[in-house]
């Protein structure tokens, strides 16, 4: 097999994994720091995409629409946390069902507001890169960098800021955190809202790759959900590994064999990993983030 073909497959699989990581990051933060599985995560991603699309249509440059989308999803996230998630702490499966209901609600709400198909915009960046005889979507490759930066940002946010320390303290030593005066409610609201903001960011940044439709989140929902759970308690770093392994692996499989086998690969490896690591791959790690 030619070298350039191999190189493009590796690069594009890496970018597929990065896209999955971008989509799953917020979910991992919320799961890792709050122990909450947010099944409406993919709808926040969708809201982010719609927000970016709407402001871009209003004439704002695409690049500026991204922070706006993040702010919108963060605010919605904070409201959702205060109204719903806060009341269900410690009830993992109840939270899952409530957020499942929320995802149904958001999906239909977007249909009511925007209709089933929304006109796209022309100002979204498109460029391509050539490797040997093959050419690749440049924006897609850019996602590798975006994923890396996003991870770095979240990592620094959690380790170098006061908020991050508080957030980690509240999850690792909740009583101690309470005792030294950390308001865990506020920290949790912020954490959840950051998780939703990351989803909004994902929706906005992926807009040139995935069109904004009410059901766009579904495509990411299942896979990012699985990747985060397989990652286990050290959600953030663990998710980097699982998205690389599962997402990249299934993309490579799809390249050499067929798309359905790629999907089956994803699910089978997920099952296999769960079997080998019954509490997630990071269950025995020493690190905490």
């Amino acid at each position: 097999m030619e070298l350039d073909y191999l190189a493009t497959i590796l690069l594009s699989s890496l970018s597929s994994a990065s896209i999955l990581l971008i989509a799953a990051m917020g979910l991992a933060v919320v799961f890792g720091l709050m122990g909450v599985i947010n099944l409406a995560h993919s709808e926040f991603l969708m809201i982010g995409a719609y927000a970016a699309l709407t402001v871009t249509k209003a004439g704002v440059p695409y690049i500026l629409s991204i922070p706006i989308a993040v702010m919108i999803t963060m605010s919605i996230g904070a409201i959702v946390e205060m109204l719903i998630v806060r009341r269900l702490y410690g009830r993992l499966f109840d939270t899952m069902l409530a957020t499942w209901g929320l995802s149904m609600f958001f999906m239909q709400l977007v249909v009511v507001i925007f209709g089933t198909s929304t006109v796209s915009v022309a100002t979204i960046p498109q460029f391509n890169v050539s490797i040997g005889e093959y050419s690749l979507d440049g924006y897609r490759l850019l996602m590798i960098l975006v994923a890396a930066l996003m991870f770095l940002f979240v990592y620094l946010l959690m380790t170098k800021t006061v908020y991050g320390m508080k957030a980690r303290a509240s999850i690792q030593q909740p009583e101690m955190a309470q005792a030294i005066g950390i308001d865990s409610n506020r920290v949790n609201t912020l954490t959840f809202s950051i998780g939703c903001g990351l989803a909004g960011f994902a929706g906005a940044i992926l807009l040139p790759l995935v069109p904004a439709t009410p059901t766009m989140g579904l495509a990411f929902a299942v896979k990012s959900f699985l990747a985060v759970v397989v990652a286990g308690p050290v959600a953030l770093t663990g998710t980097v590994l699982t998205t690389l392994g599962l997402g990249g692996g299934s993309s490579i499989t799809a390249s050499f064999l067929s798309s359905v086998i790629g999907e089956v690969f994803f699910f089978l490896i997920t099952a296999l990993l769960l079997w080998l690591y019954p509490c997630g791959i990071s269950a025995k790690w020493r690190r905490k983030l």
Binding site: S15, D137, V210, L218, A254, S255, S259, V260, G262
Partner: peptide
Amino acid sequence: FLALTVTDYTPTIQ
């Protein structure tokens, strides 16, 4: 042939 849940078309494009 593509699976229903696929959003990644790079394998096909290659």
